[in-house]
């Protein structure tokens, strides 16, 4: 069991759990909020909502899963709720990973080599995805392994593997050219 999978002992306070999680995962939460909302002002609100939900959730944290799994579940579920609400008001059509594979490649190699451009393109791709696929790609980009992604999302190991395979192929197609020219 890795350090991150360790279940905290009983007796930790709600504030203590939140502060530790926020200190450790604060940057990951910011990246996650960026993937769920493009508008900076709304994103700031979303991020604060995630922090509030996380703090409130720790009131009933029972240690049945790791803090990391708990934190990602709460954060992604708030993000998914946000996407569902925004989808109703913006009539935005979201796609699955399968459909994303058919998108055109990243422009020229020079363009793709530009890091900021690459990040923008990556964000644009992520924001097109349906919540569950968005969750998987974000977890993959954060470096989580397939087993952790399965535990957080509830997807079967085979399904996670298929989705990661698609993500890798899509990312390679979108970024390989730029990467090779850097």
């Amino acid at each position: 069991m890795s350090a991150i999978e360790t279940i905290p002992a009983a007796g930790f306070t709600q504030d203590g759990l939140y502060q530790d999680a926020a200190a450790t995962y604060g940057p990951a939460l910011e990246r996650l909020a960026r993937a769920y909302e493009a508008d900076p002002d709304i994103r700031r609100d979303l991020l604060q909502d995630i922090h509030v939900a996380l703090w409130r959730s720790f009131e009933s944290f029972d240690g049945r899963c790791s803090v990391r799994t708990w934190m990602y579940r709460v954060a992604h579920n708030i993000g998914a709720s946000h996407v569902l609400r925004q989808r109703r008001s913006k009539s935005q059509a979201l796609v699955g990973l399968e459909e994303l594979e058919n998108l055109p490649d990243a422009g020229s190699g020079q363009q793709a080599a530009d890091r900021s451009h690459a990040l923008d393109r990556l964000l644009n791709l992520i924001q097109l995805l349906k919540p569950l696929d968005r969750h998987v790609i974000l977890s993959y980009l954060e470096g989580l392994d397939a087993a952790s992604i399965g535990e957080i999302t509830g997807l079967s190991p085979g399904n996670v593997a298929t989705k990661i395979h698609r993500i890798k192929a899509m990312l390679a197609r979108q970024f390989q050219q730029g990467g090779s020219e850097q």
Partner: peptide
């Protein structure tokens, strides 16, 4: 500290997208 240590390091160091993202 290690109970909530972020182990979100790129699983594949060569993966450019993960590096850009993180």
């Amino acid at each position: 500290d290690d109970q909530v240590t972020d182990d979100a390091k790129p699983t594949d160091p060569n993966n450019q997208a993960q590096q850009i993202w993180q």
